[in-house]
């Protein structure tokens, strides 16, 4: 594995290996010294063209726990706001000796361009590109599911037989896309629920079943319900009449929460719009994995950085 651009090109063995290494990384957080010397002398650059708190912080912590040097580079307040192109920015980073570039960009495919253009030799990690993919989020979601299911005996296990319902703005969601490919690879069954206006046109080619009715999906007794954020910044057209109607039809409110099994996982990639796609009770219930997802994010990103930056050959 040279870059991590998409969960679509991960094989089942590679995906399970990343999750297994993440298990070992998770143990580091419980130690006296929460640091490993493994990536000493490597430089990781966080290149964020879009706002982010948890992903950027998570990558930063992951790199630092592995003793890599990390530089944060955000588009605001940098030369990008003066009109520098992606190519020039990338070459600047290459010139200062970056070993890995973690990139978030509003344009789908920007990480792919960076990885394949020949501008830099650094490993490229996609931290979210447009409406395309957000692979580390999907990996940490799968890791969280696996840990809830198998606890300490998670190593080596897949997600065979798990049923996952993803609800909300599928059309604009890179989290949904990355999750669909990864969950399918790991053997889970995925069902998507969204307003008709927020389902992509090519949904029939995805390895999922899709529907419009959340109540049907809740009654189908899923193992995992993943709520997606309504992304106000991408709502350029009227995809649904108003927030209240969305919340009533596609929000995980108290009444739907009560119909789920006590051990059904309620997931949300964050940041949450409480009261819109998820009620406060759902977000704070014992079913909710939201905080575990954040904690696991660091472990999964440590695993990915380790696998990309140490060693010289294939994964």
């Amino acid at each position: 594995m040279r870059h991590l651009l998409s969960t679509r090109d991960l094989s089942r063995d590679e995906a399970i290996q990343i999750l297994d290494v993440a298990e070992d990384m998770a143990d580091v957080a419980n130690r006296e010294v929460k640091k490993l010397p493994t990536l000493r002398g490597k430089t990781v650059i966080n290149l964020f063209f879009e706002d982010s708190t948890r992903t950027r912080t998570s990558f930063e912590l992951a790199a630092k726990r592995l003793s890599a040097d990390l530089v944060n580079f955000s588009a605001k307040g940098s030369s990008v706001s003066k009109g520098e192109s992606l190519k020039d920015t990338a070459q600047t980073l290459a010139a200062v000796g970056a070993d890995a570039v973690v990139i978030r960009h509003a344009s789908s495919g920007a990480p792919q361009t960076l990885a394949t253009s020949g501008w830099i030799d650094a490993a490229v990690l996609n931290a979210g590109d447009g409406t395309h993919e957000h692979p580390t989020q999907a990996l940490l979601d799968a890791f969280t599911m696996r840990r809830r299911l198998h606890g300490a005996a998670s190593r080596g296990k897949s997600l065979d037989g798990l049923t996952v319902t993803i609800v909300g703005d599928i059309l604009h969601s890179r989290v949904a896309r990355s999750n669909v490919w990864l969950l399918d690879t790991l053997g889970a069954t995925v069902r998507l629920v969204a307003p008709a206006t927020l389902l992509p046109a090519d949904i029939s080619t995805w390895p999922v079943t899709a529907g419009f009715d959340l109540d049907d999906a809740v009654d189908a007794d899923p193992d995992v319900v993943m709520m997606l954020r309504i992304q106000a910044e991408r709502m350029h057209a009227a995809f649904f009449p108003n927030a209240r109607e969305y919340s009533r039809q596609w929000g995980l409110g108290d009444e739907r929460l009560a119909r789920l099994r006590p051990d059904t996982m309620v997931m949300h990639p964050g940041p949450m719009n409480r009261g819109l796609e998820i009620s406060a009770n759902a977000a704070d219930s014992s079913r909710s994995t939201v905080l575990e997802q954040v904690a696991n994010g660091v472990s999964v990103r440590m695993a990915v950085l380790y696998l990309l930056l140490s060693g010289s050959a294939e994964l």
């Binding site: 070992d24 143990d27 490993l36 493994t38 380790y306 140490s310």
Partner: peptide
């Protein structure tokens, strides 16, 4: 497990760490 502390990680195929 000592994988993450080895001095020969570079220049070899990536080693999978084991449990500590």
């Amino acid at each position: 497990d000592v994988t993450m502390y080895r001095d020969d990680l570079a220049g070899q195929p990536t080693r999978a760490p084991a449990r500590t």
